[in-house]
Design a protein around this nucleic acid. Structure first.
Lengths: 180, 180
DNA sequence: TACCGTAGTGGAGAGCTCTCCACTTAGCAA
DNA sequence: TTGCTAAGTGGAGAGCTCTCCACTACGGTA
């Protein structure tokens, strides 16, 4: 049973976070709690890490990106679809705030599992398409890929953006047959 | 000109950090400063991030690993040398504390450049060996590789260690000829 | 030896993250 | 309607990172 006030609080936190992030990506958890009119404890019970909160706030955006998978697969080969999709995600996450450092943090693994679930599902879909037509090696693991991807959105954007090159490297690794 | 007291302070900080890390990897910067008998300001002037300090403390270990490059190259093909070398580094860094999150952090880039310089040099050497004999693509960039590697030592170790699989992926990407 | 410019110091303090637990209250049962 | 009780709350507080700047003292110079 979820109490109604709890549900409302969660909504208020999300709203406050959305507004705060829009104004300044570095807003502190405390500030958000205050703005939402809840205690820090409540904030942390709902979103145990800053990343969880960011991801929840941008859930719609993430879902939008996830939803593009079928279209991408219809338009281009799986590897290219994966490339486009990943760059979209990297772009979106980069504009956001502090996300990415959470990937692979040992703690909160259960929550991460849940939070990243849809993302993993999307990657799985893309990889499977490639495995089906033989363009992606059969032992490719979505979790590995996501984790490697984490390095991309940490990569400095700026003038010399390494991320396309890094992604190309990883994709070529996915394409190659594993060595004997 | 470096004042003698400054030099001594630096040494004292390193000693304190070494002892502290040996007892508990989570020791705070404050505690280390206190143990070294210096103010927090002095600590931060010498080592602007926790990572810089960790890396300085383990400089010898890192140097040891760097020094193994020629031996590895003499014993095995460049790709395998790179694999071994990277896993050694990952192992070492994983046992250490909080290192890895610094990779690619936009700030402190100058210091990072300096700190990671030797590591980059070692990677360059390994990559060059592979380029020479044609086993590694010519456009491989040491910086990209290091950054991707960052994801490895963030990867949860534990029973299901993704890092060898992730590394294999990256190495296969290095091996492959870039797509047309 | 006495002086002085400046490199270097250190710790108070702002502001953060996250925990803990005494308290509040929604919603069920009678 | 009136308890009752566990789900939920919130904010004080421990402890952290990192900055700032008034002060200290090293070491070159005359």
């Amino acid at each position: 049973m979820v109490r109604s006030d709890a549900r409302e609080n969660r909504v208020r936190i999300l709203a406050a976070a959305r507004e705060s992030f829009a104004e300044d990506g570095d807003t502190s958890m405390n500030q958000i709690a205050q703005r939402a009119g809840v205690g820090a404890g409540t904030l942390y019970r709902n979103f145990p890490t800053r990343e969880a909160l960011v991801l929840a706030v941008y859930k719609e955006e993430v879902e939008r990106i996830i939803d593009t998978v079928p279209a991408l697969l219809a338009q281009m080969p799986p590897i290219e679809a994966l490339r486009h999709w990943t760059m979209d995600l990297v772009e979106a996450m980069r504009r956001k705030h502090g996300l990415g450092d959470a990937l692979g943090a040992g703690a909160h693994q259960a929550i991460a599992q849940q939070t990243y679930g849809p993302v993993i599902a999307a990657i799985t879909e893309l990889l499977d398409a490639g495995k089906q037509d033989g363009s992606i090696r059969a032992d490719a693991d979505p979790g590995d890929f996501l984790q490697l991807t984490g390095a991309l959105w940490r990569a400095a954007s700026g003038p010399d953006d390494r991320s396309p090159r890094m992604l190309a490297l990883v994709l070529d690794g996915l394409r190659a047959k594993p060595r004997a």
